[in-house]
Structures are given as C-alpha cells and as structure tokens.
Design a binder for these strands. Sequence first.
DNA 1: CCTTGCTTCTACAGCGACTGTAGAAGCTAC
DNA 2: GTAGCTTCTACAGTCGCTGTAGAAGCAAGG
Lengths: 142, 142
Amino acid sequence: MANFTIGQASDASHVKVTTIRFYEDRGLLGKPPRTASGRRIYDATLIARLRFIRHARDLGFSLDDIGDLLALSDDPTRNCSAADSIAQQQLHEVRTRIAQLKALEAELSRMVTSCGGGAVVNCQVIESLADHAHCASDHPRS
Amino acid sequence: MANFTIGQASDASHVKVTTIRFYEDRGLLGKPPRTASGRRIYDATLIARLRFIRHARDLGFSLDDIGDLLALSDDPTRNCSAADSIAQQQLHEVRTRIAQLKALEAELSRMVTSCGGGAVVNCQVIESLADHAHCASDHPRS
DNA sequence: CCTTGCTTCTACAGCGACTGTAGAAGCTAC
DNA sequence: GTAGCTTCTACAGTCGCTGTAGAAGCAAGG
C-alpha cells in the first residue's frame, strides 16, 4: 500500500488539507502515523475514509452522524439498521427543509413580483417584511 | 406611546430577550433609552422593528441584508429598487438551495430504499457513502 | 552546498446567528 | 423583609470549517 502526504491525500479525496487536520482533531480519522520529522502519512484506507466523510458531508450529514456511520462501517458484522435509521432521519430532515424553503420561495416570489419599482414608502417588499399578515401563507422558522 | 421592558418587547415581537440584546449589539436597533437603573425601554416603533427583523430572518435574509433593508425603510423617499434586488437575490438563493436539496433527497431516498436490513458488510447505505460512483446522479456541495 | 519556494507543522482567532452561563443588581408581591 | 422573577454585563460555546502567524521540512535548480 502506497503512502501519501497530507497534500496528496487532500488531492485524492477532495478534502482540503486544513479540513483533514480538523477531522483528525474531531476524532474521525484516528491518529495517522508520522514521518521522523513529524509529518502525517496516509494510506489508501485513510483516503477511502476521507472520501466517505466528504460524500456524507455533501449529503448533509453532521460530523456526529458521520462518526456514527464510520463506527458502523468499521464493524461490518453489526446490523445495518442503525445506519439505515441515521439515513432515514437525514432524509426526513432534508424533506422538511425542502418544504420550508418552498414556503419561503412562494412568499419571496410574491413579494418580488408585487414590487412596482416606486419609492420605498410604497414598496411591497418592505411592506411585506414589516407585517407578516401581508403573507399569503404561513412560513416556518428555519 | 406605551413603554415596554425588554421582556415585554420579547413577548410582543417573538424575539428572545438575549437575541434582542444581540441585535442591539449588531447595530440593528440603535441604542434604546434606559431607566434610571439602566434597564432598556422599548416603544411600539422598536417593537415593529423587531418584528420586521424576525420576519426577515424567517425568510432567510442575513443580518447584513436586514440592516440594509432597515436603512431603506428608515428613508421612505428612496427608490425601492435596492430592496427589490436584495429580495430577488434571496429568492435566487432559496431556489438554488431547493434544487440542491432535491438532489440530496433523491440520493438519500435511493440509499434508504435499497437497504435490505442485513449486516453492515452488505449495507447499501454504508456502501453508497463509501463510493460516490454508486450515486444515481450527481449532487452538489451544500 | 546553497538558495528559492512550496508544503507541512502547531496553535489560535474568526465566521454567522445566535444560545448559554455566571454573578450581580433591580423590582414586585406577599 | 424576603422570595423569586427579570434584567444587567461580559464572555464562552455551538457547527463546520477557514484563515492567520511563524517555524520548520523538503525537492529542485544553480
């Protein structure tokens, strides 16, 4: 198995050098071996782990969730229902967030199209912001 | 015009006491008058301002944007095109975010439904996370 | 061999928008 | 008078990084 510097690991995983060190700090990578002069050494296994983290982050998982998912994947004999439920939960959160954002989109779009371009005193954007009652529909806290 | 304590202002605006002080710190509220013993005093104008901020935050505007919108609404003779463009920009960001989240939703949903419930060694969730190539479609960084 | 310029190292501060904490002081009701 | 709430200031913590400073390592060219 070939060895890589942190920079090479960064290129291979598309995780920035500083972010790799940050993940190590957060306990997601363990403590990689070092050269005599103290530089970190990475192998293909660690790079796969970085890619896993990167992919999970892209999908919106928190670092805590990712820690749990990595622990599961480190022990392949365990049942995957825990992994499944983390992913289910994440899917649920994404769907909730989409619904929220759609409500915001409707409201913003209504606000923007009703702006006639006159003076602020008549501006529908300012007006709508000043009074929630102007909203066509309710929208949640994000 | 009636006067309110910070707690009453909080109840009336649905902005938490600590958050009101935080907004003041950020220059969104000016420096409210104080009682002899140093407690903040709010009137209906300030409470309307708090509601404006709250509503704009609910719609996802940043505090910086809200500062700009408040400055516009403080000077009602100005043209509202600036307000319009801030709102347009926000609408654009919300739409972008919705599109991103829909891609995540598709991927997560694919992941979750393909999970047969066996051992981790065969888990599609873990598998998909480990390898982006398993993804049906691309998904962006959030 | 020596310099140049890139990479890596540690340690810490900063982002946004709050939230939580500590400890003191004021204020209201019984 | 005292119990218990509110308010005050000032600062630390949240999340997931990003940026900074200053020092040291390392590879290539002269």
